[in-house]
Simulated scan of single mutants.
Amino acid sequence: MNRIDTHHHMIPPDYRKVLRQAGIDDAGGRALPGWSPEESLQTMAELGVATAILSVSTPGTTVLPVAADAAALARDLNDYSAELVAARPDRFGFFATVPMPHLDEAVTESVRALDKLGADGVVLLANSAGTYVGASGQDELFAALDARSAVVFIHPADLPGPTVDGVQPFAADFLLDTTRAAYLLVRNGIRRRYPNIKFVLSHAGGFVPYASHRMAVSITGDVGGSPADHLDDFASFYFDTALSSSAAALPSLLAFAKPGHVTFGSDFPFAPVAVSKLFAAGLETYGGLDAAGRRAIDRDNALALFPRFGAVAPPRAPSLVDQIRHTASRTVMRGVVRLMSAQ
């Protein structure tokens, strides 16, 4: 029981009522599951989780299009979360709900939640009613978060477009949604202008590790700069393992992410306990990790983000494998730079 789960959702009773009143009974194509603090604690026991950082998943406050209504819902959700954490501070933390895309209200609630409620960070949907994290005009919010060295959990939402018949959004669209947000955060220079923000990308970053070199080249052709620097910006994100610690996904994630930048995630209750156990087992049995590497993902890397949950272990020195992986990435980028310069 030592894991820290950075991707663990809650569905408070009043929030469920708001969704029902809006005619919403699913998220990402999956029916809304049951949830209670007691169910979270039971699941945590089964997954070996000591502490879960709670967050509200999509659609969040976007279910209420009026800014004042969205802000009121965010306040209610964050007050509920703070009370829950106050009752079990050793077992729960929370990412505050932010009423995007309403920028003024989002700044106000972020500041209140972080400064007065003791939130462990904020959750931002990759897109809120079609407005993406990282789009132009959001500097006021990022400045407030940067001043507080905030942890920002990026969670996907339904894509701002029609669904494809037979493709459940959570299965593929969510991964693209997260990738789009990450792309804009790098492309528009937000990662570099606000270096104190620790962005955590859901589900191993969507397609980011796999497509990082391609995206770095695209950004260079679009706005200039160095593809190697853009690649470093992508690698500077944190990534959780929710639904992603498989034999196919883990090698790509671990080859790309900076050491110390991968955290454990269960995606409960949207992922049934059996599914969360399956992916947790993949992490436990993956041959590319030693005991120290697993311990880092399970707990130590999250402790660096949330030190209140225990003594922070000293940063793990990059292993020889880590060094080889990152050297290989830089070598590829240098080759790309030479090719672009020759054209």
Rank of each mutant, 00 (worst) to 15 (best):
S57F: 14
L114V: 13
P307S: 05
I197H: 07
K198E: 09
A50Y: 12
G260S: 09
I219D: 07
D90F: 13
R20L: 13
R316A: 15
T108A: 14
R187H: 12
D267H: 05
L19Q: 10
L303E: 07
T61H: 00
S202Y: 10
A171Y: 05
S218H: 08
L283T: 09
D76K: 07
A274G: 10
L305D: 10
I297N: 07
L47T: 01
A68F: 00
V312P: 06
W35H: 04
L278R: 14
G282S: 09
V85C: 07
G265M: 01
D300Q: 08
P307E: 06
L254D: 09
F239D: 08
L250V: 01
D14V: 13
D115C: 08
R191N: 11
F270M: 01
T263G: 14
V273S: 04
F94L: 08
G205K: 09
A328M: 02
H8W: 06
Q323W: 09
H8I: 11
N127R: 02
A135S: 15
D69M: 02
K258L: 11
N188K: 04
A281I: 00
A342Y: 03
G134P: 10
A280D: 11
R316H: 01
R112V: 11
A171H: 07
G121P: 05
F264S: 03
I24Q: 02
D139V: 12
G288R: 05
D5F: 07
H8F: 05
S57V: 15
M10C: 11
V151A: 13
L250M: 05
L175G: 08
R187K: 14
P99Q: 13
V107W: 00
D322A: 01
A248P: 04
D177M: 02
G134I: 07
A204L: 02
G293F: 07
F237L: 13
G310S: 12
V262H: 06
P315E: 08
D14N: 15
G265N: 01
P195M: 12
A228S: 13
P13R: 15
V122Q: 08
A96L: 09
E284T: 07
G118Q: 11
F239R: 05
T61K: 00
A274W: 06
G93R: 06
A113G: 08
G118I: 13
H203T: 03
G29W: 00
F142V: 10
V164S: 15
S218F: 02
S36F: 09
H102V: 03
Q168E: 15
M340S: 02
V18Q: 03
V336A: 11
S136L: 15
S136C: 14
L103K: 01
D14Y: 00
S319K: 09
V151K: 15
A274D: 15
L339W: 02
A182F: 00
D177P: 01
E105M: 04
S244K: 11
Q343D: 14
N2S: 13
A228G: 07
F234D: 04
G29V: 03
G335F: 15
A119N: 08
R148G: 09
H203E: 07
G189H: 06
S276M: 06
I24F: 01
G282P: 13
A70F: 00
S36L: 09
L32G: 14
V151N: 13
L103N: 03
A235R: 15
F207H: 13
T51Y: 00
A204I: 02
F234L: 01
Q323S: 04
L339E: 15
H230V: 04
P269I: 08
V85A: 03
F309V: 02
